[in-house]
Amino acid sequence: MNLIFDLIIAVCLVGISMRIIFARGHFQAIVLFITYGLFLALAWTRLNSPDIAIAEAAVGAGLTGVLLMDTLGAIKTSEEKKMRIKVPLKLAVMSIVLVIVLGYSALQIPSDFSGLSLTVHNAMPLSGLEYSVTAVLLDFRSYDTWLELGVLLTAVIGVLTVRRRNSLTGSALPAPAEPVGRWIIKILLPFMVIIGGYLLWLGAFAPGGAFQAGVVLAGAGVMLWQAGHPCLAVLSNSSWRLLLCLGFSTFLILAASSLYYADQMLTHPQIKAWILGIEYAATISIAICLISLIQASPNSKLDKVS
């Protein structure tokens, strides 16, 4: 029964990606891409990776969808091209070769291979955390997480540069007279903040953590921005910038300060507060970065007005 379910997911994933390639309009392609993200989240759930599933559903299906829709609104031309898209032959051949190589190497993995999970399990006492995924992200491989925060920060700086803006505040309009919009914000916002905090707290011992919590909080921010709620503009420009680089700079301070008492970067004293500090800073930074990316998107309401 489970095998049938897995096969259906696999077939749907391949089918949807084919349809994305051959989609006639941009809008159709975006909707299919969001669907693809949801199916991918389902696949990760079936692979016992709830962490990636939450991140995929929130980022791949949610926030990327908003970004793509915004971009579509900005580049929309009066007539949609009806022509069939041809897939370049070189690209198709290369993809097929890649699939064969990946498939072959996946078949070469012995069935009782447990990867690095045993190593991680043995090293768990060193981290002072209870959940292995969080321990890997924030302790064993914190270098990767640090650079990921750097990537997000660079993306925001890049978007601001391209859009020739130096300020992210003030891009929200005052709340429009939309009773349903105000009502849904009033109901959903507390829930989103609670769920964000819950995911962050959950990260210490169960699937969840900084990234998922940050994305949920960013979702709340995007909702406020889309509704033109003025509360995001309360943050001054300097505090907005401070929050943008909070996560990255916390890691930087940790990396630099650890050189004083250890001969390796990014080692930390066995205090849970240290890890929690990083996690909270990363969550806030991720949320603010993602909101900034969407606020500075081409179809921003400010551009329409001016």
């Binding site: 349903v180 919009g181 849904i184 109901i187 959903l188």
Partner: peptide, 16 residues
């Protein structure tokens, strides 16, 4: 309940 709130509001927005 959250799906109810979300879908009915989304319905209103699209319809409006």
């Amino acid at each position: 309940l959250l799906a109810l709130i979300g879908s009915s509001s989304a319905c209103y927005f699209i319809g409006n």
